[in-house]
Design a protein around this nucleic acid. Structure first.
Lengths: 149, 149
DNA sequence: TATTGTTATACTCTATAACTATA
DNA sequence: TATAGTTATAGAGTATAACAATA
């Protein structure tokens, strides 16, 4: 019986590392998110992009990319996918003919109207084992770690 | 002046979501990790794989994949890379001729001897703005979220 | 000169399906 | 029959470099 066939493997110093636990929590949330919004087939990243377009109608692909931290060349395919699914519209920019003014289509808008409360409920479910005070603390800790460049 | 050119964009409900803050913290840790161990060119994922091999010498690729949550077909290229860099050895398994017994090479061992304290120091740095009590709490919260399937 | 969107290209990470050697 | 490693293939996500159109 070789190691790992039945029992657990040794993890060494990993369980004590913040980074390891952060990664595991993030994977858990990501997978759970997929299940929660499964009928709509939207990833957390796509949800973020759709939120940004919804909240900043008319923004350009470049500015969107800067905001979510991906290159403008990468953004092309991201918008291609959302546009081909009929969720996002590339409208001509009124004052700059090089760029697009991105906005949600009516389908995209109603998708988000449905999705936002669903995502918020899912998010609450991820911290259901934490008390309200602990939840506040947890988000505060996460923000402080993000800032600790 | 279109939105986003100078000021920040609106983020809508994102900043209140645990998942969003978790993702941001994880990205920050990942990038910082890369910088901290830059001379060795090791990703957090590779570090995890090397730790598992170090702590469970002789394990197979399949068992390793199961432990770190990736498919055995994906593990092939992961080990290929570490083997071609001279860090990991595919030794013949003594009792099953289908599988390999993975172990660190001497180079891999000394890399890890150097890397482990470096990673631990980096990890501490990520939570340097949290008090010792808060750090304990933080890891506890992360584990509870991981379990909240 | 600089910027926007795009394409070509490349690399990582990931999976499924099918193959082979073995169990 | 089942499992271990592999390959072929595919898709998402990421980047850099270069290009045309426009600023």
């Amino acid at each position: 019986m070789r190691p790992g066939k039945n029992g657990k493997l040794a993890l060494g110093p990993l369980p004590e590392l913040v980074g390891y636990n952060l990664r595991k929590a993030q994977v858990a949330v990501f997978q759970s998110f997929q299940t929660a919004v499964a009928p709509h087939d939207i990833t957390p990243g796509q949800f973020g992009v759709l939120i940004m377009i919804r909240e900043n109608e008319g923004l350009s692909q470049s500015d969107l990319g800067t905001a979510v931290g991906i290159d403008r060349s990468t953004m092309v395919a991201v918008i291609d996918r959302l546009e081909s699914r009929g969720l996002v519209v590339r409208a001509p920019s009124p004052n700059d003919r090089r760029s697009y003014a991105l906005r949600l289509s009516p389908e995209g808008q109603s998708l988000m109207d449905d999705l936002i409360p669903r995502v918020q409920a899912h998010d609450q479910g991820m911290v259901k084992d934490l008390s309200p005070e602990e939840q506040v603390q947890f988000i505060d800790f996460l923000r402080r770690v993000s800032r600790a460049k």
